[in-house]
């Protein structure tokens, strides 16, 4: 996984997020913050070092961390549909 800043894309799927705060509090780059609904959102994408902590520790599988060069593989759009169910 990339260890340089700004080489990854973090996506939070709000439909699955319960706002527990694990990702917001433990992120080493402080990438995520709470929005007005109490759910996590990506505030500072460029600070992400791609450690994958949030993805591994999200109890609700609501976060994905993808390397930027892989963004065209359509996985994100498929996943979004699942989140709405």
């Amino acid at each position: 996984m990339a260890k340089k800043k700004g080489e990854t894309i973090v996506t939070v799927y709000p439909a699955w997020c319960k706002g527990c705060g694990i990702c917001v509090n433990f992120c080493p780059g402080k990438v995520l913050e709470f929005d007005e609904h109490g759910k996590a959102y990506v505030a500072r994408m460029e600070e992400c070092i791609g450690c994958g902590f949030c993805e591994l520790h999200c109890p609700d599988f609501a976060i994905s961390v993808v390397a930027k060069d892989k963004k065209d593989n359509k996985n994100n759009s498929e996943h979004k549909d699942e989140g709405k169910n």
Partner: peptide, 25 residues
């Protein structure tokens, strides 16, 4: 890099109600 979240969705029963029943955190 393992695309963890995508992988997890392959093994879940999507006919069940998600997000799951567990409390936040």
């Amino acid at each position: 890099m393992v695309e963890t979240t995508k992988l997890i969705h392959e093994y879940l029963r999507h006919s069940k109600k998600f997000p799951h029943v567990y409390c936040p955190g």
